[in-house]
Every structure is written in C-alpha cells, then in structure tokens.
Amino acid sequence: MSAIKVALAGNPNTGKSTLFNTLTGLKQHTGNWPGKTVIRAEGSFEHKGEEYVLVDLPGTYSLFSNSADEEVARDYIVFEQPDATIVVLDATSLERNLNLAFQVLEMTDRVIVCINLIDEADKKGIVIDEKKLAAKLGVPVVKMSARNKIGIDLLLNTLDHLVKEKINPSPYRMTYSEEIERKISQIEAQITGLFGAELPSRWIALRLLDGDDALVAKLKEYIDKKKDGVTANELPISANS
C-alpha cells in the first residue's frame, strides 16, 4: 500500500515548519521543485500503522499566481491531489490567516485547519472556540502548540479519521453576485466536462474568470499529460468561452 500524501500549507511564521519537523524528525529531505528555485521539503512519519509522506509547501499569504511560491503551493494541492491538506494558522492572527484557509477550502474537501501557537494566544487572552469554528468552516479544526508538542496526538488522530473517511467534511465556499455565479456555473460545466471530478472545477472557474494565465498554462500541460483525446483548445480561457 502506498504512503498517504499530506500537504502542509500556511502563511509564513505560523509555525508550519516547526510542525513539519516535529512530525517527521530526521526522516526528511529537501531539494527543489521541478523547474523552480523554490525549496521542496518532504518527510515521512507513521501513525496507527500507516505511513505518511508530508510535503511542507512554501509559506504564502495567498494561492494565486503572484509568485513562484504561490504557484508551487497551489499546483501541488490542485494537481497532485494529496490525501489531506493541513492548513496551519497563527492563533494570534486568526482573521488574517483565514484568507489562505478559505482559498484551500475552494480547492479540496480534505482539509484540517490547525490553529497553532495556542500558547501565545492564551498569554494574550485570546480565546478560540474551535468547535464553533469547525462548524462554520465545515472541516475539522485542531488547536495546538507545535513547539511544545501540545495537540499533536489530536491532530494525528484527526488526520487518521479524515483519510479513512470517518469524517465527512463539507467545506465553506464563498458565494458571489448572481452574475458571477452564473459565469462560474457556465465555466464549471465545461471544466467538469473535460476533467470530471479529477480537479476542483469551481475553483478553476473562479481563477479563469480572474484571468489567471499561469493556471491556463498549467491546465494545458495537465491535459497534454493526462487526457488522451482531449485537446487544449477545448479549455475555456475566459468568461465568454
């Protein structure tokens, strides 16, 4: 049985790398992402008899196409389709960090939101109701302190439940104006026709509406590699396609 792939996403300075090091210990290595100067960090660990491969994505504030880091992070989640994505948030800057979490929730259902640095939040008198937040986001939420190894077992058990489908997430998705939603539906239908359920059609439709040329290029590359009999010319590249 192949190892379970897990992506680790988050803003810079959220303790994401600390969590990565805590989980993988010495079982890790680094290199560059193919065709990029961006560092790729990958490690492994075991839990409940399962082997996991953990990929530490570059720290980013968004998952658009504004930098190589952003492209690497979003392309891994969308095209490599990890079995789970852990989004690490800073408990002391939750509102700002949630922007990235919402973007990941548009891409995949298989998400755990990890609220790190909870010890720092406690010092500042910040109280976070993780159950209420989980109900709002529609995915599991775990509070922890990676550097103090608080909440690690809960995170791992939650991950186990997610990959074994003992949890059925229903992620929150943004809704837009009637006109935008109509255009999303039109493009989404074309994307689904091309890829079925392989790729997140709604998220792709949103990015195409926004004129994301880098994503268009990546989709054409994906078609060339994966979809025999489908041509890149069938790809809707604008809202008027």
Rank of each mutant, 00 (worst) to 15 (best):
Leu215Asn: 00
Asp210Tyr: 04
Ala217Leu: 05
Gly196Val: 10
Leu156Tyr: 10
Arg202Phe: 03
Ile184His: 00
Ile223Leu: 12
Val230Glu: 05
Ala205Asn: 01
Leu219Asp: 01
Lys220Val: 08
Pro171Leu: 09
Leu159Ile: 12
Glu234Leu: 14
Arg182Asp: 09
Lys227Cys: 09
Ile187Thr: 05
Glu181Gly: 10
Leu206Ser: 01
Asp224Pro: 05
Pro200Lys: 15
Ser170Asn: 12
Ser201Leu: 04
Lys164Gln: 11
Glu188Thr: 07
Thr192Gln: 08
Lys226Glu: 11
Asn233Ala: 12
Ala214Ile: 06
Ala197Tyr: 11
Asp224His: 09
Ile191Asn: 03
Ile191Ser: 05
Asp210Thr: 02
Glu179Ile: 04
Lys166Leu: 14
Asp224Ile: 09
Arg207Thr: 01
Leu156Asp: 03
Ser241Ile: 09
Asn233His: 07
Leu199Asn: 14
Lys220Cys: 07
Ile237Ser: 01
Pro171Cys: 13
Glu188Asn: 08
Leu219Phe: 05
Val163Met: 13
Ala239Cys: 04
Gly193Trp: 09
Ala232Phe: 08
Lys164Gly: 05
Met174Val: 12
Glu178Val: 11
Ser185Glu: 07
Gln186Val: 06
Pro169Cys: 09
Asp153Ile: 13
Val230Pro: 04
Tyr172His: 13
Gln186Tyr: 04
Thr231Trp: 06
Leu208Lys: 00
Leu235Tyr: 04
Lys166Gly: 06
Pro169Arg: 13
Leu219Thr: 01
Leu215Trp: 00
Pro171Gln: 14
Gly229Asp: 13
Pro171Ala: 12
Phe195Met: 06
Ala239Ser: 05
Ile180Thr: 13
Met174Ser: 11
Tyr222Arg: 07
Gly196Asn: 10
Asp210Phe: 02
Ile167Cys: 10
Leu194Ala: 09
Thr175Ser: 15
Gln186Leu: 10
Glu165Pro: 03
Lys220Arg: 14
Ser170Gly: 12
Ile191Lys: 03
Glu198Trp: 12
Lys225Phe: 10
Gly193Val: 06
Ser238Ile: 01
Ile180Gln: 11
Leu162Tyr: 11
Tyr222Asp: 07
Asp213Arg: 00
Ser241Thr: 09
Gly211Glu: 03
Asp228Ile: 09
Thr158Asn: 07
Val216Cys: 01
Leu156Cys: 11
Ser238Lys: 04
Glu178Asn: 12
Glu165Lys: 09
Asn157Lys: 15
Lys183Ser: 04
Leu162Asp: 07
